[in-house]
Amino acid sequence: MENKNPCISVVDLTMAYGDFVVMRNLNFTINRGDIFIIMGGSGCGKSTLLRHMIGLKPPAKGEILYGDFNFWKAEPARRQEMMRHVGVLYQSGALWSSMTLAENVALPLQQYTRLSKEKIREQVSLKLSLVALAGFEDFYPSEISGGMRKRAGLARAMALDPEILFFDEPSAGLDPVSAKRLDDLILQLRDSLDATVVVVTHELASIFAIGSNSVFLDPESRTMIASGDPKKLLAEDHDPRIQTFLRRGETEEDQA
């Protein structure tokens, strides 16, 4: 990445549920234009970290900075304003089940803009066609497949042309081909929208295909043990925990 201006900085973050500390001493920076991977084994707090970054859970300690905007120290109203520039794709899609796909994608637009009904309709059909769901406007989330639901969730996340996109396990529950297509879509969107992308995942294929930077969370020591380009981590980092993860538990001799 040529322009190295930080987009999100996490400073000395500690995450906890009550007294139970999930992760401590998290320090990393996400640059503009990065596809930043949050990786680690199941249950190590990846999604919790995401929930901290999108304003659903306040940190026990530490700060999250968007540029120089201190996210959790700010007034809730300012935080909401900030969230206008952020899109989130939840693990299960999290489409509102009582609303059609078109209404799902339209709601953020109605919430933040004063566009006319006609304009919103155009936006909605554009966003749905970007994720290859043109013509599905009047379907309810329960009437489409899991992969389609995920793509519809992505269309909703992109509704406001966000500068930052968060993905919680985008390829979970998708077949390898659909997962690959979603990865390609993420890359294309990053390039065309000039967005910064943060992805929570443990799919190795995705990590190497799209990741330009990453942080590795280790559940045993309850903190991050590495950060950087995942391909470089694979080649250069000699921590056995990272090597095991990135090589699916196989040693170098196994792969050769």
């Binding site: 909401q80 989130v88 299960s92 999290a94 509102w96 089940s97 919430q111 933040y112």
Partner: peptide, 15 residues
Amino acid sequence: MQVNEEIDALETLAV
């Protein structure tokens, strides 16, 4: 809706 993260999705959109 809570189980399905739908309420989270509303909150992040400031609805």
